[in-house]
Design a protein around this nucleic acid. Structure first.
Lengths: 212, 212
DNA sequence: TGCGTTTTAGCTCGTACGTTCTAGAATGCC
DNA sequence: GGCATTCTAGAACGTACGAGCTAAAACGCA
């Protein structure tokens, strides 16, 4: 059994014996690999190690549990990546971001992709709350790319011939596309071709006008 | 009731009274909007109009029915689009392709996206047959884009500074990304920004070398 | 020590699912 | 006209699901 966690309530007779972080990690693994409908509450009980009553008491029903797991994933996986890449120079940040995505996608033996992208097509379309959460995370990623592009255009490492917002949004689209392709055709050549062209777009020499 | 269809068997006492095309269309609508798990056989019976026994007799079980519906969608929707765009000049073909995708995505009030992309994240990861079918369709789209790019590079309407295969694969990735984004954030500005940058990449003047 | 709470395992409930079966009506071919 | 086949509507079967409950054990605090 994992170590204690203090819990949030004022008066607690017996402290929780499970590590909420570890439980959320396990729930993320389940939902990530098998989706919302594909993960039963019994699966969650078996893989998190906590009992059913504890699950419902600590996290609410299955839907609320998925919501917390998705938040946990976004915060821990995507937020962390944005923070780490944000410390680099703008053009290098975008390069590092996609390099990590490629590495993760090609090393993903289960082909489970990105939980956020999976959620976008799994739960978000049929649940306004999930959709809002996914949309918010996508806006954050878009902002990251747009900020990088703006800064890169300012310091001359990224082409100025395309509006920063269009470039940022394009990178968001490419990211989503890679995450989809990688689940079906996890071929290095394919994914590297996709990002190579994206980088060629960024590195386009300044001062050249597009035809359209 | 729809008209007769001849059927494939040699000796048939009573011909099928339902139109197989119409039934497949209805099945596509169901699976497209609600996914595989989200569509029950009872839903299919209600929306196709045929009885359960006829469904199982004509199409096999639910999984086989989905397979046929997906094939029907790919052949009718994507194959048709590729054929129509293939008649245009290469650069115009890519433009028309994405213009149609944008129009469909923005006019999609149900936000059901593309059934092939949905299948890629819904059924393909957990079923090798589905995965093979989806991968095959993706290869076809990739081929379409690569052929367009190659022809466009030959006639000078598409930049020669990026390998044709990378450009084609990039367009495939962008297409997948748009289909995902459109389901969560069906905003014209966002989607148009994504494709505008892609077109800027194609229209890049020839003779300029990329840094990477 | 004993009260209050959380823990555990497992049972139970109602519902929905995929699939098969029943029974009868309809139709084409010999 | 009769045989074979397919049609229809609907019942039925077995399974799995989400959710709640029970009873007993574990633990902190007064």
């Amino acid at each position: 059994m994992p170590g204690l966690s203090p819990g949030a309530d004022d008066e607690m007779a017996r402290p929780r014996e499970f590590d909420e972080e570890a439980v959320l990690d396990a729930a993320v693994r389940c939902f990530w690999a098998h989706g919302y409908e594909g993960t039963s509450v019994r699966d969650l009980i078996a893989n998190t190690g906590i009992a059913g009553a504890s699950l419902y008491n600590a996290f609410g029903d299955k839907r609320a549990f998925y919501q917390k797991a998705l938040d946990h994933y976004v915060e821990g996986s995507i937020g962390d990546r944005i923070r780490r890449c944000g410390d680099l120079a703008p053009r290098a940040a975008i390069g590092a971001f996609f390099a990590e995505i490629l590495k993760r996608s090609l090393g993903d033996r289960q082909h489970k992709g990105c939980m956020l992208v999976n959620a976008a097509l799994d739960v978000a379309p049929h649940d306004p709350d999930f959709r809002k959460a996914v949309a918010g995370a996508l806006v954050d990623i878009e902002q990251f790319f747009c900020n990088c592009v703006k800064a890169g255009q300012a310091d001359g490492t990224i082409t100025r011939s395309v509006p920063a917002q269009d470039l940022g949004r394009h990178l968001l689209g490419v990211l989503m596309g890679i995450r989809v392709l990688a689940r079906i055709r996890p071929e290095r050549q394919l994914l590297e071709g996709v990002v190579a062209a994206a980088f060629a777009l960024l590195d386009r020499p300044v001062g050249e006008a597009a035809k359209q």
